[in-house]
Design a protein around this nucleic acid. Structure first.
Length: 887
RNA sequence: GGGCGGCUAGCUCAGCUGGUCAGAGCGCCUGGUUUACACCCAGGAGGUCGGGGGUUCGAACCCCUCGCCGCCCACCA
């Protein structure tokens, strides 16, 4: 006997351990099996499971389990990302907290050893947590971006791109994170609006004492590095000044006034200071005019030694204050205005202001790689779901900038570049190869120094789709599982990751990395607020698993996964789906208590009772919907269809109808109903398994104890393949009417507010010929049902006072139960409603435009509707007349 | 500045290519000890589908416009 409720806490760990130990997570080794593969978006090794992972992992697991059951060689490949900067910072912080010496004092090798230690200790956290969700990853294939194999792939890709001219080293302005003292990419910078100031500064015109040109700036400290002042070539105010010089205040240097389109006469004063080493626009202006690049900052954003002595060593913001004060003192500050502006911050901390800074870095020619990546999506070789994200992807790809891939941190893939004594660079996969090439170059051995930098962490994750499968080796996995089938990830990393994978995979494998990208929404709290620690509204998926069970959380994630941008998650929602699980559990208990066990050799195609033919068809319909939905990676649609079927069809009607049959005298019908019910439950378990693996597996095991033995666990059981011939249209039509009739009857009873003790007999007298036929055909079932519900059914009682309603007509013997006046009013209202319906419909049909232009089916529908309404109206009118006679 | 989304019952959301589309869950109200289930059962109330125009025989769905809300991108001195 099944327990009263499902206990996830004991069942889930047990089942997961059984699955994992039995090796079913690995793709089946049948060469004939069609491959299906997903690579996990690798979480940071330092990470732990958050609600967004729960959503993505649920989706990936649903698809993997579904395809596994469909007989495919299904692989869900797990792994983690070394997450260069993030991990390095975390370990540094941890070392500091435990009183260790700093990273720089420790030295590179010792520090990296510490990070590996950290990884060894905490790197498995998220994988353990994923298991609690039921993730059926093939853990034997787990990868880490710094694994030997993956690192080899990184070196090979880097070297190849370099030899192809698609990676180069160049001195350019980069986004510099002064606290970490590393370059970051454009994507790692976030512009935030702040209330700042704009200062107007007078630059004295050389040779014309008392005359100034006023420039406006939000960053006065950078004036120490000014190389020019620019005005628009057509700006009449400054025509005579073009070509002249100004004496740069404080720095006391002469710089030219130049004409450049960049200066916008509408903005500020129309004259703009040009600081090529500290501003991206100015850098371009400087290049156009051959201006010197004057860097005035140290790597940690203090004023350096090119500046006047007074400011040297000052922090950039302190220097700003000092410079403004000094300008004011010498009367060169014309004014200051409050100014709302966008300031670039470090994307992670949102605290550190990013500086444009002049350094040597390695760059990927993204524009060249983007071409094929754009074409692949245009041609539909990779499809985004939902498709709106394709626009975002195209927009970025078509305007892509060179990608700065070098980082001045230690934790990561060291750039495979070596410098010779004369600065010649040798880019090779190994030091030995570099030495060999250098020997050839110099004619003798020269000492080589490897580049200190590591690669952007997204460089290695950009190879994830193929490096994890063994590339550059010609592995069987690579041949079988590349391209992968689906990628499930958040829209927030379209640029960081999806786009880079597209570019790098297409370039090196010649094919897309995945056929479909499912973009998941951002999960917010129930009020639509972003989850954040400071707001205290973060929900921990593991807590939810503890409280409601993994299946409930999974069902919730699946059901909500259709949302494009935001998912507002509430506990009530999860409770609702937990209740759904309980409902299923109880349905299974009902089956068990009523002897609905599986029957050896049972053939669902051969059932004869209308209710069994009907539920067989409903099951087949649901199976088709669910299968199609999951094929399309629409877990939400599958969840929705299953919820409705299990609760609103199987439990609400099927099991209720089965009760009288099971208790009835017709032994054959009862036996058939038992077998059929068990069969339906079996199908339901299989269809639900991808979404609710634990409860379904548990029930599969429990229901397997009776009847023929199970061939396998549910996780590897075959997916139901129910033919369309299982749908019996006649049975469907009949049951639809029966259900409508019963619903109508319930409604009447309830509206009449009949106390349960009074239980009036419910009679059918005014049914039309069709309804009557159906009702009479099912008289036995209905009688049984009505008996259970305390109602009686009698098609022959002519003495009843008629009552009719839309759908099937039902009648009640009113006498003591019905308020005649109220019933009259009710009927009149019905009649009036039907009259307007008839009027509207006939007007429609009399409209020649409608008949001519509307589709035939629609016209037919309207004709039918008119006929039905007229018939109903006639019946109701007759009933009303009789009711009046009684009253 | 450019782009993209959203605005449908108290709440969170479905409504596919215009033709029963005005829906679901939760919440609320009424009733229920009918041995699967109160994590339940039955019933009910609630919306002029953000405003205004237009196209059409017909619009929540298409077009225009306005209004909020959100997100992404962008070098605005």
């Amino acid at each position: 006997m099944l327990e009263k409720t499902f206990d996830p806490k004991t069942v889930e760990p047990r089942l997961y351990a059984t699955w994992e130990a039995s090796g079913v997570f690995a793709p089946r080794d049948d060469p004939g099996a069609e491959p299906f593969s997903i690579v996990i978006p690798p979480p940071n090794v330092t990470g732990s499971l958050h609600i967004g992972h729960a959503l993505q992992y649920t989706l990936q697991d649903v698809l993997t389990r579904f395809q596994r059951m469909r007989g495919k060689a299904a692989l869900w490949l797990p792994g983690t990302d070394h997450a260069g900067i993030a991990t390095q910072m975390m370990v540094e912080r941890q070392l500091a907290e435990s009183g260790n010496i700093g990273r720089r004092e420790m030295g590179r090798d010792a520090f990296i050893e510490k990070v590996w230690e950290w990884k060894g200790r905490y790197g498995g956290t998220i994988a353990r947590q994923a298991r609690r969700l039921g993730a059926s990853c093939d853990w034997s294939r787990e990868r880490f971006t710094l694994d030997d194999g993956l690192s080899a792939a990184v070196r090979k890709v880097f070297v190849a791109l370099h030899k192809q001219g698609l990676i180069y080293r160049a001195k350019r302005l980069v986004n510099w994170q002064p606290e970490l003292q590393t370059a970051v990419s454009d994507l790692e910078v976030v512009n935030l609006e702040v209330n700042g100031s704009m200062w107007r500064i007078r630059y004295p015109i050389e040779g014309e004492p008392g005359r100034f040109i006023v420039v406006a700036t939000t960053r006065p400290e950078t004036m120490l590095g000014d190389s020019a002042v620019a005005v628009h070539p057509t700006d009449e105010r400054y025509q005579d000044l073009i070509g002249r010089e100004v004496r740069l205040p404080l720095a006391d240097r002469l710089i030219p006034i130049i004409a450049d389109e960049h200066a916008d006469p509408e903005k500020g004063t129309g004259a703009v200071k040009i600081t090529p080493a500290h501003d991206f626009n100015d850098f371009r202006v400087g290049q156009r005019h051959g201006l010197p690049l004057i860097n005035v900052l140290t790597p940690d954003a203090k004023i350096n030694d090119t500046a006047p002595e007074k400011y040297r060593g000052m922090d950039r913001f302190a220097a700003r204050k000092a410079i403004v004060a000094d300008l004011e003192e010498v009367g060169l500050l014309e004014g200051v205005d409050a100014n709302k502006m966008m300031i670039p911050y470090d994307e992670k901390s949102k605290l550190v202001v990013i500086e444009p800074y002049l350094t040597d870095q390695w760059w990927v020619d993204a524009a060249t790689l983007a071409g094929p990546a754009i074409a692949a999506v245009e041609q539909g070789r990779t499809v985004f779901q939902p498709a709106v994200w394709e626009k975002t992807y195209f927009e970025w790809m078509r305007n892509i900038e060179p990608w700065c891939v070098s980082r001045q941190v230690w934790w990561g893939h060291r750039i495979p570049a070596w410098f010779g004594p004369d600065g010649t660079t040798f880019v090779e996969e190994t030091e030995d190869e570099a030495k060999a090439v250098a020997r050839a170059h110099y004619g003798k051995d020269e000492p080589l120094i490897q580049d200190e930098d590591v690669l952007d962490t997204w460089f290695s994750s950009g190879l994830w789709a193929f490096s994890t499968l063994g590339w550059p080796d010609d592995t069987r996995d690579l041949a079988r599982f590349y391209p992968t089938s689906v990628l499930v990830t958040g829209f927030d990393i379209i640029f960081f990751w999806v786009a880079r994978m597209m570019m790098l995979s297409l370039h090196f494998l010649g094919d897309v990395p995945f056929r479909k990208v499912v973009m998941t929404a951002l999960i917010r709290d129930e009020h639509g607020q972003k989850m954040s620690k400071t707001k205290g509204n973060v929900v921990d998926p593991l807590e939810l698993v503890d409280e409601y069970g993994a299946d409930a959380l999974r069902f919730t994630m699946a059901a909500l996964s259709g949302q494009v941008r935001n998912i507002n998650l509430s506990r009530q929602r999860i409770e609702g789906y937990r209740n759904f699980g309980t409902k299923l559990w109880n349905a299974a208990r009902f089956c068990q208590m009523n002897g609905c066990a599986r029957v050896d050799g049972f053939d669902p195609a051969a059932v004869t009772h209308v209710q069994n033919r009907w539920i067989r068809g409903e099951t087949a319909k649901t199976c088709a919907v669910v299968t199609e939905a999951l094929e399309a990676a629409r877990a939400d649609e599958a969840a929705d269809a299953l919820y409705r079927f299990v609760w609103n069809v199987f439990c609400d009607w099927r099991l209720e109808f089965a009760k009288p049959l099971l208790a009835g005298d017709d032994a054959a019908a009862a036996a058939e109903t038992r077998a059929m019910t068990a069969w339906v439950l079996d199908q339901v378990l299989a269809l639900l398994h991808p979404i609710m693996p634990f409860m379904t597996e548990e029930l599969w095991e429990a229901t397997g104890r009776e009847g023929p033995p199970r061939d396998s666990m549910l996780i590897t059981a075959p997916w139901p393949d129910l033919p369309a011939s299982f749908i019996d249209e006649a049975a469907s039509a009949e049951m639809e009417l029966v259900i409508a009739a019963i619903s109508e009857g319930r409604s009447i009873r309830s509206e009449l507010n009949v106390p349960p003790s009074a239980r009036p007999p419910l009679l059918v007298t005014e049914a039309g010929p069709r309804e009557r036929r159906v009702l009479e055909a099912n008289a036995e079932s209905i009688r049984q049902l009505l008996r259970v519900s305390g109602l009686r059914f009698d098609a022959a009682d002519a003495s009843a006072v008629p009552f009719a309603a839309r759908g099937a007509a039902l009648a009640l013997p009113v006498a003591e139960f019905i308020d005649l006046a109220a019933e009259r009013a009710r009927l009149s209202k019905e009649v009036a409603a039907l009259a307007t319906d008839i009027q509207r419909t006939s007007a429609k049909l009399n409209n020649p435009d409608f008949v001519a232009r509307a589709p035939e089916e629609v016209v037919d529908e309207n004709r039918e509707r008119l006929a039905e309404a007229e018939a109903s109206k006639a019946r109701l009118e007759a009933a009303l007349k009789r009711l009046e006679a009684v009253g």
